[in-house]
């Protein structure tokens, strides 16, 4: 397709890599802000998700909050926060963190919940404390789903950050907004390709990390696609909840 050829030529054009705010600058900006948002979301959602997965409590509340967050339109939230706080990094970060929390939370609690109950009972029988069970048994075994959640989060943040360029943010979305304003489809397609490529590269890197950190013997990814859902409905042994309170 001619348009795609044009877009790749546009991306490879040295002029777009050297002058003023060039592709590399927008790329770095996009990456830095996405990274910041993902980090904040992980810092909030990971402990909560692990707590929910370990104790089996608060799952309903987490799902409800996630669903509401999913229904909130990014564009609307962004315009409200920008009207309240002015144009800047703060409203963009807040909106993307709100967007990033549900997938991370889901990955964390589904991961911990998917750990075999018998394994946890065995760890408890060996005399492990609840903290040891969480840190040495549940988290390592939950890693495939935990990192799966992180990958979904990163994809979503990188793709959605493009919208922020409509509100005076740099980043790679600038080519979408400029392309749209100038009816320059080559530039627009180039912007779309750059964002998609960035998302895929980050996803590939995280997939490599997933391969490296998941302990041997833990099935990589979801070998049984229904496992987490079925586990999620499994009744939780009483001992687990009592253990949390003591």
């Amino acid at each position: 397709m001619n348009l795609f050829g044009g877009a790749f030529a546009w991306i490879l054009d040295p002029a777009h890599w050297s002058a003023g705010p060039d592709i590399s600058g927008h790329l770095l900006e996009h990456l830095a802000v996405s990274g910041l948002c993902v980090l904040i979301a992980v810092a909030i959602a990971l402990p909560i998700g692990i707590g929910i997965g370990h104790s089996g409590r608060g799952r309903g509340a987490a799902i409800l909050i996630s669903n509401i967050a999913r229904a909130l339109p990014t564009l609307g939230l962004l315009s409200i926060l920008i009207l309240l706080f002015g144009i800047g990094l703060l409203p963009i970060t807040v909106v993307l963190v709100i967007l990033a929390i549900p997938p991370m939370l889901a990955g964390a609690y589904a991961g911990v919940e998917s750990v075999d109950r018998q394994t946890i009972d065995a760890a408890r029988a060996l005399g492990m404390t609840e903290w040891q069970i969480v840190l040495r048994v549940e988290i390592p075994l939950a890693l495939p789903l935990l990192i799966g959640g992180l990958r979904a989060t990163a994809l979503q943040v990188i793709a959605t950050l493009g919208i922020a360029s409509a509100f005076a943010f740099g980043g790679l979305g600038i080519y979408l907004i400029n392309g749209l304003a100038q009816a320059d489809f080559v530039q627009l397609l180039a912007g779309a390709i750059l964002i998609t490529a960035l998302a895929l590269v980050v996803d590939g890197l995280l997939a490599a990390v997933q391969r490296l950190v998941v302990p041997h013997g833990v099935a990589l990814g979801r070998s049984n696609p229904n496992d987490p859902q079925k586990r999620a409905r499994a009744p939780r042994p009483r001992a687990v909840q009592e253990g949390m309170q003591s």
Partner: peptide, 26 residues
């Protein structure tokens, strides 16, 4: 089929929404 369809879905979902919206008419 599962791995092909799911990765294809993942890639499609990565395309930023404004980009897709403007590419569709083209």
């Amino acid at each position: 089929a599962r791995s092909i369809l799911l990765s294809l879905g993942g890639v499609l979902y990565t395309i930023p929404s404004i980009a897709l919206l403007v590419l569709v008419p083209v």
